[in-house]
Each structure stands twice: as C-alpha cells, then as structure tokens.
Design a binder for these strands. Structure first.
Lengths: 337, 337
DNA sequence: GTGAAAGCGCTAACAG
DNA sequence: CTGTTAGCGCTTTCAC
C-alpha cells in the first residue's frame, strides 16, 4: 500500500520522538520497558524494516561483507562460498557478492564499488590483480582478506591453502607409486595458486633426483576442456616420451581428462594415471574415482570470515595456511619396477 | 591515509559548492565545460569514489539487484547466476546476493533485508516460500522476478523453464525407446519445479495408456546422494517390479545414480536407463554421457535481468516460459520388443 | 552557470 | 527515561 514506514511514522503514531523509537528498536535499556515493548509491537504491526542504507550512512559502515570472486560457476569457488555464507550468516552479516570474470581491472573496480556501499570489509577469492593493486590497498582502511592469493598491507590478511605443499604431496604420491615421467596440466597462470602448486611439483621432482622438464608442463586454464585437450596432447606424444601420469591443476580439468580418456579408449589408470586437486564433490563419483589433494574449501571460507570479523574487532589477525590431505582413490596406478 | 574524500572535500579544494561538484560528476550540462572537466580531473586525482549508501538514500533506490537463492553450490544455480551476472553487469547493475539454504523463513527475511538496502528490484531463484508470502509481495513496490517458481502479484514477474513440458519430454523419450516401467526420482517437494516435472511425467505416462503408480516415485532432494540411494532402492526391488528406466529430477542426482551403478556393477544403460534434467556441464562428461533435458540456465538468468530492468522502466513485462530440448546421449537404451 | 538550503532515514550526543 | 539537535554524503529544488 503506502511506502515502507520509517522510524518517524512509528514515532508519530506512538506519540514519541524518533530517537526514542530508534533506541527502543535497538533494545536500549535507556528506554522504559513499557514503551520499548509498545514500540516494538507497533513496528511489527506496521511491518517496519530498517533502512540499512540510512543506517550504514550514519554509522559509516554496515554489517555487510563484500565478496569478490573471479566466477561463481566453479565448484571449488561454490564450496568456499558455502563456508563463507554459513559463517557470515551466523555472525549476522550479509554478503554483497560481485564477480569479475577473472578480469583484474574489474576486480579493482569492484573493490571501489563495494567500498562505496560502506561494506564492513572485503573478502577476495583467488585475486587476479597484481602490482598496481598495492597502492589501492594501502589507502583502504577497511580490512581485506584474500583467499588463495597473497597480498600484504596494513589491513590485509590472507587465508590460503598451502599450495606448494599440496603440489608437492600430489607429485610425491605419484613418485611413490613408481611414476617417473609426470606431466603437469597447468592452471590460470595469473593466479597465485597455480604458481605455488607448480613449485611443489618441481620440488618433489628434484628431491627425487629427477629434473624439471619444461615440455612436460601443458598449458591449461583449469577448465573441463583443458583436461580434454591434455589427453589429446598425450595421445600425440611418441611412445618413449609419453608420461605415465598427469598431475592436474584442479579436479575440473582432471575430470575432463578422465572423460576424454574413456571416449578415446584410454584406460585410466592402467594406461595413464591422473591426479587432481581440490576434492570437489564430483571427484568422488567420477569413473574411476579421482585421486586428489583435498582443499579444505569450506574451512577456507569460514576462516576468511573469522579473520575478517576478528580484524573488525581490532584484534590481531595472522595469516592462515591450510594443508589438505591426499585423498587416494582409483585414478593412480602403482607402476611395476 | 586520510578517509575517503567526499564531494565536499572536492568542493573545498576546487573552490566551488558541493552541488556544483555533484552536477559536474553527473555530467550535467548545467555546469560549464571548463569547471566540469576541472572537477572530474580533480576527482580522479583524489581517487574519489561516490558513497553509494548516501546516493541510494537520497534517490530511494540504487543500481543494485537483490538476488536470493536457496544455495550457491549447485551447478544449475551457478549457471543461472552466470547469465544473471553477465546481463546485470552489462546494464551497470551490481548484485547483492543472499542465500537461504532452502529455508522459507529465511527467504522472507532476506527479502526484507535486501529491500532495506534500497535495491532496485529482486530476483529470486527457486523460491521455496509459499502462502504467507503473497501478503508480503503485495506490499512491495519494487519489482520482483521469480525464476522457476510461480508467484503472482502487482509487481511480480516470472521467468521459468516449462517444467511440465520438460518432464513430459523426458518421459516421452523413455516411452519411445520402449520403456514401460519408469521410476521417477523426486526433487525437493516444496519447490514448484518438482511438481511440474512430475506432472509432465504423469501426463506422458497416461497418454501412453499407462497408469501413474505412486510407488514408482522415489523420494529425493536432487542431491548426488539421493541418486545413490535410488540405485539401492532399485537393487532391492523384486525382478518383475523393477523399473527399466529412471527419470531423475535433475542431473546431479542422475550423476549420483550413475556412479553408484558403476560401483555396484550395474551397467548403464544395459541394465538400467537413466534420464536427467538440466544439462549441467558434467552431464556431458559422465560415463556414460547423460541423456537429459536441457534447461536454458544462462538464458534464464539473462531474461530475469531483462524482465527486471524492463519493469524498472515501467514498461510492460510478461511472464516468460522457456522450453529446453531433449539432449540424447548414451544413458538410455532402446528396449527390444 | 553556480550557490544555498533542505532532506533522504537513521543514530548519537546533549539536554532536561 | 525521553525529546531536541545535528549530521552521515549525496541530490535537488530554488534563488541569484
């Protein structure tokens, strides 16, 4: 019917001052129980909803967390979001979510916009922005938590998977199973996590006395399609040079590889072993089930919120690194000597 | 360093009134080109970002679309989000996303909160709220678009898949392939789309002269797990009563069924045919690839935005129903006579 | 073409 | 305990 009622409307009807209404609704003890209850009842009756815009304007910030992510349609991101969502809801915070399609400029633009909404703080997933960013970060007084990217600054915090360790763990497992030629299917090269996983891969190789070979790194972007293409690359290698195993940047591309292998008549793991990364829900039900390194995504999301809220209370916050475990399933074969 | 500069700061430095700055930044022709450019340059230099909170307060609304969804970790939702995201970004709108975990009360709470942020309008995915909702809807003056749920009201619009048709199409295909006992693995019973797909299933059955059997509807919730459990139900049926095909509420549960079948040594499609719904990215790479009815998710998201923006311009908007096509892959077998 | 003033809905001193 | 006042950052009449 009429417009949404404001605190003034309530005040007029109740015959009190707007400030009294404000206090009553905030359950301030500075207003008598009687009027407090009377006003609250009235507010309920009128279907009053506070204008968060006005509130955030006067308070200078609002119980909203800005979240920025390169995409929303990736199962790894979805899972982080879920942890993030639950934790923030429990803490009484809403989320303003923006996605960047992996575009660094747009990421920066989104930071500005969200700040314009007076969000209390920001959580940025898999940031793709580099360099020039630092400058902006230095000017911001709201806390910012990066998930799986590493940035530094006054109010900047990090929650990340120990990707170097994960990459090492994955490669190490392949080596233990007797593999000697291990290809690495790469991820988005602008992302921090790709670089770290690649470093772990290389370290494991070198620790085993093998040398890192550039031509065993296949370009990719973490998509299903990248996995499929990787299989064709493999098919085209001459027999002696053909790797016996693939370590994939993520499960999604590993799953693509699995599917294409099946279609091309390549048996996994007998002809080729495949290792993923993330442990997305689908990894459990692929054929064969995918051996992978778990990423504690839910926890990543939850801890990002915890860190942000802690920072908001001006308590000290330290960077957090999470190590995932190796999940052994059926896509890696033990090689004969 | 200092706080974010406001329009006042710029005004002081430029030696003009705040209102002039406001106009200059809005590119109003009512301010001379010279000052306009001078102020815009200054704003850029000072790294000025408008307070959207303040702006939305005075304007009574903001270029933000509130989006409500039961979850963010479902690939179908993710895909709708993607369409939604692209379309809204292109139109210069941001999104305030909230999720409800499928809880109807929380859905209503979210509607209120988002409205408190002065969002320009709302898009609600797979609404789970019923009845009492109507009352609330009637009071709201902002446009609301429901995706895959049907609600009515003054400023209420719908964009939906023609689920009845889809259910019919799926079942019809199974019938054409010679199946006579077709089980239906159900979805969330509170959702509108479940009911419609079930109706299509029933209609196809009856058109073929078969009767709808209640005991062939297996309870489920559209999760991977529901699919797995359905397979066990099937395994426990006596031979003569065992269906030769499953029509699953969605791909996710169909995929779960596929996986469990493989593990239990049940051959799909030789022993059992499986039909999904949605055509999520994974459906293409499952083993065997999943026959399904496509849901034009991307389009659903895009059209939801278009409808909302059209309503915002006070132009007439009509409800939209999208029909997806049958995607024949390899999980359904043609039965011998 | 530019400035002064009012007000969006709310909270937070400061009075009484 | 309650009312009055001021102001958050911005847009928008209404004057000049």
């Amino acid at each position: 019917m009429s417009q949404r009622p404001s605190i003034k409307d309530i005040a007029r009807i109740a015959g009190v001052a707007p400030s009294t209404v404000s206090r009553a609704l905030a359950d301030s003890p500075r207003v008598s129980l009687a009027t407090r209850e009377r006003i609250q009842a009235l507010a309920r009756e009128l279907d009053y909803t506070p204008s968060l815009a006005a509130r955030s304007l006067v308070m200078g910030s609002s119980p909203v967390i800005g979240v920025i992510s390169p995409t929303l349609s990736d199962p790894y991101i979805a899972s982080v979001m879920k942890g993030l969502e639950e934790a923030s809801h429990q803490a009484g915070y809403q989320r303003l979510v923006a996605s960047t399609q992996g575009d660094a400029e747009r990421e920066i633009e989104m930071v500005r916009m969200l700040l314009g909404h007076n969000v209390g703080g920001l959580i940025i997933l898999s940031s793709r922005a580099q360099g020039a960013y630092q400058e902006l970060l230095a000017q911001i007084s709201e806390p910012i938590v990066f998930v799986n990217a590493l940035h530094t600054g006054e109010h900047v915090y990090n929650v990340a998977t120990d990707n170097e360790h994960g990459g090492w763990l994955a490669t190490q497992h392949l080596l233990t199973q007797g593999h000697r030629r291990i290809a690495y299917l790469a991820g988005p090269t602008r992302g921090r996590s790709y670089v770290a996983r690649a470093a772990g891969y290389r370290r494991a190789l070198e620790e085993a006395g093998l040398s890192f070979e550039r031509q065993l790194v296949i370009p990719g972007d973490g998509s299903i399609r990248a996995g499929r293409e990787a299989l064709h690359w493999w098919l085209n290698q001459p027999d002696e040079q053909r790797p016996t195993a693939f370590f994939c940047y993520n499960d999604l591309s590993a799953l693509g590889l699995l599917s294409e292998a099946h279609q091309q008549g390549v048996n996994i793991p007998d002809d080729l072993s495949v290792m993923g990364f993330d442990n997305v829900p689908m990894a459990k039900i692929s054929i064969p089930p995918l051996t992978t390194v778990e990423q504690r995504t839910h926890e990543l999301g939850r801890l990002a919120v915890v860190s942000l809220l802690t920072a908001l209370e001006n308590k000290p916050v330290t960077d957090i690194f999470l190590r995932g475990e190796l999940i052994v399933r059926a896509s890696v074969k033990r090689m004969e000597e």
